[in-house]
Computed example of a mutant assay.
Amino acid sequence: MTIALAGDVHFEGALRGRLEAPATALARLTSTLAAADVAVVNLETSVGSGGRPDPTKRFAFQAPPSTFAALRAAGVDVATMANNHALDFGREPLPATFAAMDRAATQDPPLAVVGLGRDVADAFAPAVVDVGGTLVSTIGATVADQDPTADRTGQWAATPDSPGTADAIADPERLLRAVRSADRSTDVVVVYLHWGIQGERCPSDDQRRLARSLVDAGADVVAGSHTHGLQGDGRLDGPRGQGYVAYGLGNYAWYTPTELTGVLTLSVQPAAERDSRARVTDAAWSPASIGADGLPVPLRGAAEQDARDEIASLRGCAGFSD
């Protein structure tokens, strides 16, 4: 089976007008994402209407509920909203957000949203996709503790009594428990994190420590974004075999041109036995660059080879040799 991973998506700037026709808003992305059995992106915006932009933030993003229809039409199966923009307009829009999430989850094809919930248990709950009898769990969480767009951190974390994001900044134990639980009940576990330091091409020590803890807990794939640029990807040894970590997936559908982005598609062999783990047998990048319209354009020829060389060069400082 295959899992496609892409980075940050929103509908600001040149992308906003595309939501007038959500069924074709992201049509250029469909071939790569829909070709995978499971496609996962980071939805870096609040969704809904109303509320007020957070006065402490330099950038506040909000998109209408048709955002979910656009992602569904593009072939996205799971979107995480555990990030520093999911509540840019506060909690007031959340009832409509949750209603739109519920509708998206029951439509054909369905879209599951993780990392944002009516309470903390809901926020950390995985999306489970059945791929021909193989159950794939995806968990979303935010662990980024350096947000240059805001003066406060963690203010929108879900609690037992209030809605918000799946926040593991202060304590990753709830996240690790969610991974262990998913590992017991499903065949493949994907964790998509909002983490790292913006602008850094190499993962931080905190990222590397947490990645190892997640693989040890049973995560088969660990991926993330927030740095707005690619970081290295590769295999990481764990107690029951290797997990695959992609530290930074960068921007993907974004309002500023980006020289290098892409989709990482992993071929995964599910575990043959419960006490073993799923194995990533192949990892393939589809390099692209983001143009003036906010959408990625596949790279070809020499530009594609240059992109692959650059992606490979990022593995060294991420601690990967292959």
Rank of each mutant, 00 (worst) to 15 (best):
I3M: 08
A4H: 03
A6Q: 02
G7T: 01
D8F: 01
D8S: 03
F11A: 06
L15R: 03
E20W: 11
E20C: 07
P22T: 12
A23T: 12
T24W: 01
A25V: 11
A27N: 06
L29Q: 10
T32Q: 14
T32A: 15
A35D: 10
D37E: 10
V38I: 11
A39Y: 07
V40H: 09
L43V: 10
E44M: 09
S46M: 15
S46D: 12
G50N: 10
G50S: 10
P55Y: 08
F59T: 13
A60T: 15
F61I: 09
T67Q: 03
T67S: 13
L71W: 04
A74Q: 06
D77W: 02
N84D: 10
H85S: 03
D88T: 09
D88H: 09
G90H: 09
R91S: 14
E92F: 12
P93K: 07
P95Q: 06
T97H: 01
T97C: 02
F98H: 07
A100N: 05
M101S: 01
A104H: 10
A104G: 11
Q107G: 13
D108Y: 01
D108E: 13
D108R: 13
L111C: 07
A112S: 15
G115M: 03
G115Q: 04
R118Y: 00
D122C: 08
P126F: 05
P126D: 00
V129A: 11
D130N: 12
G132K: 04
L135S: 11
V136F: 04
V136W: 05
T138N: 00
A141K: 02
A141M: 06
A144V: 08
P148R: 08
R152G: 01
R152Y: 15
T153A: 14
S162R: 14
I169S: 04
D171W: 08
L175M: 07
L176Y: 04
A178E: 01
V179T: 05
R184H: 10
S185K: 11
V188I: 15
V190R: 08
Y192Q: 15
Y192K: 12
Y192W: 12
H194E: 09
H194Q: 13
G196Y: 04
I197S: 11
E200G: 04
R201A: 15
C202I: 09
C202T: 13
D205A: 15
D206E: 15
A211E: 05
A211N: 04
D220I: 11
D220A: 11
V222Y: 07
A223G: 05
H226P: 07
T227S: 15
G232A: 04
D233C: 15
R235V: 09
R235L: 13
L236H: 08
G241A: 08
Y244D: 02
V245R: 05
A246P: 01
W254N: 01
E259T: 13
L260T: 00
T261K: 08
G262D: 03
L264Q: 02
S267M: 06
V268G: 04
R277V: 14
R277A: 12
V280A: 06
V280L: 07
A283L: 04
A284G: 02
A284R: 14
A288P: 00
S289E: 13
S289T: 11
P296A: 08
P296H: 06
V297H: 14
R300P: 02
R300E: 15
Q305N: 03
D306F: 12
E310M: 06
I311D: 03
I311E: 03
R315E: 09
A318H: 00
G319D: 00
G319R: 00
S321T: 14
D322G: 12
